[in-house]
Amino acid sequence: MTSQPVPESLRSLLADTLDIPSAEVTPELSTQTLESWDSFTHLQVILALEGEYGVQFDPQRIPDLTSVAKLQAALAEKGVAL
């Protein structure tokens, strides 16, 4: 996956939800690299994105959206202009 910079609005939302400084929100940030990103935090991330951008993710894909890059790609797929 190419490492594009994370747009400011997404970065601030993820920083608030994951409770980390916004500088730490990189495309590579994932459930593997951030210990506090557990399954409940993941649900909160999904709900925050769905609420903010007015989209709904397929529940079968939700468990795989485990990094910032993957979330960004899934949003782009839904036609969200970040």
């Binding site: 939800t17 909160q44 925050a48 609420g51």
Partner: peptide, 11 residues
């Protein structure tokens, strides 16, 4: 208000 704001306040 936004969900993330609620989380910030709860924290």
């Amino acid at each position: 208000c936004k969900p993330s704001d609620v989380q910030i306040c709860a924290r």
